[in-house]
């Protein structure tokens, strides 16, 4: 293989982590299966008929970017957090540290795999939405993908921070879930924010996932990036914060 030993190692590590991800039923379920279940559940309740709530768009039309946000949050706060914290606690990182591999390669492999799985989760949603509910896509695919990448990396950063500052894998997992679940329901990722009362909508302004939902929903219906400067700013800020803090808090053991 071309590209030097570190690239070959990265490729091997990434492929291995891919296999491990798919062998771990819980992570694969929440990333790949659960969003589809939500889609079919709400699809069977509301269908995808044009609705006055959503400016003439159907429930499923606006749910696909929202559920994508849900997958991003789950990947960041569960998959990344649990894997890194458990790898550290069990001594898996220690074992790797005895080899010439660089820590960057280990973390990069982790990010690539979780990113690919998140992307796969979104693709499954789009396929199901397209064939079962004939969703309308009014945006630009590259633009949506760009937003998806930005939001994913920002949330992965949150996962790394949690894994870094929590003392044990167990607490990292619990804290991750405690942050994740309320956020899913209050940010508009789990179900449309239009259905929430006004007072609760005010709370969502404090949740980072809200900005993911806003950005992805906007890009999905073809709005310009310039219409989402706040969302982008929050995501970029979160990403920078995540990278700095996770470098500072990374521990081998």
């Amino acid at each position: 293989m071309r590209g030097g030993p570190q690239m070959r190692r990265l490729y091997k590590m990434t492929w291995m982590e891919c296999k491990l991800f798919l062998r771990e039923p819980l992570g694969a379920f929440f990333t790949l299966i659960f969003p589809l279940m939500m889609l079919f559940l709400f699809g069977s309740i509301y269908g995808n008929a044009p609705s006055q709530y959503f400016n003439g768009r159907g429930t499923i039309d606006i749910s696909i970017p929202a559920y994508t946000a849900m997958i991003i949050a789950t990947s960041g706060l569960m998959s990344i957090t649990i894997t890194i914290a458990a790898y550290r606690e069990k001594g898996i990182l220690r074992r790797l540290r005895t080899t010439p591999i660089s820590p960057f390669t280990i973390l990069a492999a982790q990010v690539i795999v979780v990113f690919l799985m998140t992307l796969l989760g979104m693709i499954l949603l789009i396929i199901a939405g397209k064939f079962v509910y004939h969703v309308h896509f009014e945006g630009n695919a590259f633009s949506v993908f760009g937003g998806f990448v930005l939001c994913s990396l920002s949330f992965f950063g949150l996962g790394f921070i949690l894994a870094g500052i929590m003392p044990t894998a167990r607490t990292a997992q619990i804290v991750g879930m405690v942050i994740l679940y309320p956020m899913l329901f209050l940010s508009g990722a789990g179900f449309p924010r239009e259905l929430l009362p006004e007072t609760i909508r005010k709370v969502s302004a404090f949740l980072p996932l809200t900005y993911v939902v806003n950005l992805l929903r906007g890009l999905w219906i073809g709005e310009a990036w310039s219409a989402h400067l706040l969302d982008i700013g929050v995501m970029v800020g979160l990403l920078i914060f995540g990278v700095i803090v996770s470098i500072k808090t990374f521990r081998w053991e």
Partner: peptide
């Protein structure tokens, strides 16, 4: 190096571990 407290991921197979670690050297 063999460490006192270390592990491999639960679902990694024996041959995969050897193959992966071999690629690191």
């Amino acid at each position: 190096i063999q460490l006192q407290n270390s592990n491999l991921p639960d679902h990694m197979k024996v041959w995969e571990a050897l193959d992966l670690y071999a690629s690191l050297y």
